[in-house]
Amino acid sequence: MKRSLVLVLGAALVAAACTYQAPTYRDLDRIAQQQQREAILNRPPPDTCQLAAHRHLLGADGGAIQQSSLPAGARIICHGCAVTLDYRAERLNLELGPDGKVANLRCG
């Protein structure tokens, strides 16, 4: 009984090993293209407005920020205030929360 069970399991293993097919060049090309698309989608946006250099301002009091310490064209946007919708990648926007502290930084 044990011997026949071993033979059946061995035959199943051999059959499973014979069904494997190595990927074709077309399969590998498709996988590479998919990985390239994912890399492009997951790429962080470029830091066009010096955002990384000003991250320390998150949580700071908006009234205490010196405009001269910010890049040219930067704007401090009060909570609920209207702003223009023109996009300028080099412009740093500091958005204040309801408490008057910097809640968000973004380029545009």
Rank of each mutant, 00 (worst) to 15 (best):
A64R: 15
R37Y: 06
H56M: 02
R30V: 15
A52D: 15
Q21C: 01
D61Q: 14
L41M: 06
D61L: 03
L58T: 04
N42F: 00
Y25L: 08
G62V: 00
I40R: 13
E38Y: 10
L57K: 13
A39F: 15
D27Y: 01
T48H: 08
L58P: 07
T48K: 14
A32P: 03
H56F: 06
N42S: 09
A53R: 08
T19V: 14
A53V: 01
G62K: 00
L28Y: 02
L58I: 10
A64M: 10
L28M: 11
Q50L: 13
P46Y: 00
Q34D: 14
Q50G: 06
N42Q: 09
E38G: 02
P45N: 14
Q36F: 01
Y20M: 12
C18F: 04
P45V: 09
E38A: 09
R30M: 13
T24Q: 11
R55E: 06
T24G: 14
R26G: 15
I31L: 07
L51A: 07
Q36N: 04
D27C: 05
A53W: 00
A22M: 09
D61S: 10
A22E: 06
Q34Y: 07
A32Q: 04
T24M: 10
N42P: 01
A64F: 03
G62L: 00
R30D: 15
R55V: 01
H54A: 05
E38I: 11
Q33K: 05
T19H: 04
Y25Q: 11
R30F: 03
Q36K: 07
C49G: 09
A52M: 13
Q34V: 08
L28Q: 05
A53S: 05
T19E: 02
Q33N: 03
R26S: 15
Y20H: 09
A53T: 02
P45A: 15
Q33D: 03
R55M: 02
H54E: 01
A22P: 07
R43N: 10
H56T: 04
H54M: 08
L51D: 01
I31G: 01
P46V: 00
A22C: 08
R26L: 13
L41Q: 13
D27I: 01
G59K: 00
D29Q: 05
L51F: 00
G62W: 00
A22L: 15
R43P: 04
Y20E: 07
T48N: 12
I40S: 06
D29Y: 05
I40M: 09
D27G: 02
I40W: 06
